[in-house]
Simulated assay, not measured.
Amino acid sequence: MSELSLLKKELFGDATTAISDIKFYPGENSQASIEEIAGYTRAALADIRSGTARDIDLSF
């Protein structure tokens, strides 16, 4: 199963936890494939769920 298919299933599959609206900004590397973006997104979600993600300082 492709990374994109797995991400779709993870984000939208379960009606009780499904995300209804999400947008992705490709950043400065417009050469990234949709599969790469989906893979990195899935990895980030896994880090968040496992508690190993780090906070990002959004203050200016």
Rank of each mutant, 00 (worst) to 15 (best):
I22P: 03
A38V: 00
S5H: 14
Y25K: 11
D14C: 07
E35L: 03
F24N: 03
T17K: 15
S30Y: 06
T41I: 03
D47V: 00
A46S: 15
I56R: 02
S50V: 07
L6S: 15
L6D: 10
A43T: 07
I48W: 01
R49S: 08
L4P: 00
S33P: 03
T41V: 13
L58P: 00
Q31C: 07
D47G: 04
Y25H: 14
T52K: 15
R49W: 03
R54E: 09
D55Q: 02
L7I: 00
I34D: 15
T17V: 08
A32I: 02
K9F: 08
A18V: 05
G27W: 07
S33D: 11
R49V: 02
S5I: 12
A18F: 08
K23G: 11
D55M: 04
S59T: 12
D47H: 04
Q31T: 12
T16V: 13
A44S: 13
A53I: 05
A38C: 09
A18P: 02
L6Q: 14
Q31F: 11
E10K: 11
F12H: 09
L7N: 05
K8E: 13
A53N: 10
K9C: 10
E10M: 05
S2M: 07
S59K: 08
A18C: 10
A32S: 14
P26T: 11
D14Y: 08
F60Y: 09
I56G: 07
A43R: 08
E35Y: 03
